[in-house]
Design a binder for these strands. Structure first.
Lengths: 240, 240
DNA sequence: ACAAAAGTGTTGAGAGTACACCCATGC
DNA sequence: GCATGGGTGTACTCTCAACACTTTTGT
């Protein structure tokens, strides 16, 4: 970036003499609907807009002196009530005509949250917030359909190479649930024994002494993620 | 992003009533110095600044109605004279105090260019542009040292999984040069026969009928990248 | 003929993949 | 006792990694 004193006319415009592109963040939230065997994303319905009534990914403007991740966290909470999620940066989209109201650059984030872990509420900036299937999304405002596809691709990539799938489940989960999570996201059936072997080889989950009671058939042991495990990124592919 | 009519006070500030964060792009350019066995990056020296005299990654402000990639391409050309490079988005950095002059969000890009392919000239916005070793960089302005490390990590990752290393070489190259490129970037010695086997298994390069003359020893065949090849991303690790 | 770099195959180890039966519980 | 989902081991294939000698050219 050039210094203040060596700015061209366009450059100095960015410090207030002429409007720069607007800057927003958008947050793709993924969660599972295990009973329905579906992958969901959290969308808001736009209220008063060229896009009135259309669904969109939650997000909003970045404030001055606010970091990108803070802005994303804040907008997510304001618009949907979802808090305490680990956000990961996805990509930045800046096509000048992605928003018909004016040039807007958006930095996108994504996160995984446990099934049914949050109560979704519509915030002040959104008329409504609700879960929708990632595989059959409603029509989306702006370029949000593209952003959603990009996020899904990244989620799959992440699950192929890491055991991050547990983030889509409650703190304690059965191995069958975890495998089901992977099968829903990867849209592919996995072998039960191979799945478990790689999971244990990775050395990142541990058995609890509790079982899931109440279902049909033999009760399954509950497992949890090991707090002391390497959180990320094996170099080799784990799944499928 | 909320609509215009549902904006909070902070939101409407972003459309001009109060200053938003500034928005810039920065471009990390990698190239090889094969004789010196070194990986270089193109830096500019800042002219009149809190950072006067320090080196920095080339970049600058995004204009209104200009896409991010266009802005990156333009700034690179203006500041260094480098043109016609394929840019890939890296990450966006937005920490409020990464620039002491005010909150500035930067979208970073990186690119690989063939050794000695371009004539570097200092543009109007930079006092000087020059190649520097990635492994022993000079002190850098802002958070540019961190950006450079991040770019190097991504470059290594890319070369481990793809045959993109040829982008660091002229259109026709010897297999030994290509292997040397990988060894410089990965900072690791590779096995000649295994390297060649994986390269040919990938089916992305082809022999020309020309040889590199003039050196010592047996002349090496020249190869080129196959225009019709899959450009990207094998799922499995290729190198080392 | 010798110095220098190019080019070329094989083997053993480890990882990946496919596959089927017994177990514990609730009704 | 039977229906339901939970849990476990092995054999084959293929990929990965280690390793050394012959060939072609210039001097």
């Amino acid at each position: 970036m050039p210094s203040l004193t060596e700015m061209s006319p366009e450059d100095s415009a960015q410090f207030g003499l002429q409007r720069p592109p607007a800057l927003t963040v958008d947050v793709v939230i993924f969660s599972l609907a295990l009973p329905e065997h579906n992958l969901n994303t959290l969308l808001i319905r736009r209220a008063n807009d060229p896009f009135k009534g259309e669904w969109a990914i939650p997000g909003g403007f970045v404030n001055y002196n606010e970091s990108l991740k803070t802005a994303a966290t804040r907008e997510l909470a304001e618009e949907t009530g979802v808090r305490n999620v680990y956000l990961e940066q996805l990509y930045s989209f800046g096509n000048p005509n992605r928003d018909p109201r004016g040039h807007t650059v958006t930095v996108t984030y994504f996160a995984l949250i446990p099934a049914d872990s949050v109560q979704v509420i519509a915030g002040t900036d959104a008329a409504e917030a609700a879960w929708h299937s990632v595989y059959k999304p409603p029509p989306l405002a702006f370029d949000h359909a593209r952003i959603l596809q990009y996020a899904l691709q990244r989620l799959r990539y992440k699950l192929e190479y890491t055991v991050a799938g547990f983030k889509l489940l409650p703190a304690e989960f059965t191995l069958t649930d975890l495998q089901t999570a992977y099968e829903i996201v990867l849209a592919e059936k996995l072998d039960k024994r191979n799945f478990r072997r790689r999971l244990f080889d990775g050395d990142v989950i541990e058995q609890t002494d509790r079982r899931r009671e109440g279902g049909e058939g033999r009760p399954a042991m509950l497992y949890r993620y090991r707090a002391d495990a390497d959180p990320e990124v094996k170099a080799r592919r784990l799944f499928p």
